[in-house]
Amino acid sequence: MTTGVVLIKEHAERVKPPRMLAVPFNFGNTLGEANNPDYQHEVLEATFALLDHNSGPVLQQFETGPIPDPIVQGSHVINTSASKRFKAEEEVRSFIDYYERWLSLNLGRTGVGLSTIPYGDFGKMANFLEGYIEGTTSDMPERPTQFSLAHFIRYCVDDLKSFCFESRMAQKPNITVNALHEWFWVETSVARLILRLEKRMASDDNEEIKAEAYSIAR
């Protein structure tokens, strides 16, 4: 039998799974708060308690304190990094010490790795994306052959984001979720690069490239 957590109560009302606890947290924050085991156990206790019901479906709301603000999205803010005249490549290189601090503090746990490019080469990766936008480069020699160009670009973007977010969290360990997203999308040259990349990909003749554009910069 199953019991679980759902983030969109309206969907569970339509699907009608046997037992679901509806939580009011942001997408990606399923059990409420990172590094708060007591609170995560509260959510899990309520989820497992649904197994005690004799009939279903059971869709119960998890009662909690203030509901978190929605996450800042890249498409809803203005990036101001152009005024700094700081290239994404330079910015990435400037983050390496912070990223290594993150690795050290988190026993190697990192979201980086999908592109398979080592983080020491992320400046080179940023240069490849810059060249791709400008039309001076069409591919990166290090791209694994099992990834199409469109997928590889997506994984490069995912890795750059993870690298920047983790570097910032190492630099400012107490930064809030929304301050983190706002910093990235408003202040960084990497975000500006990604926003320009989205426009470049959306205008491509290749349907796979065009389809990926939507999925890199919201």
Binding site: N26, G28, S162
Partner: peptide, 18 residues
Amino acid sequence: SLSFDRTQTYRDINITFP
């Protein structure tokens, strides 16, 4: 999907995968 926050999973995988 890009419609969710990944940063808290970087901090603590248990927030999504307990």
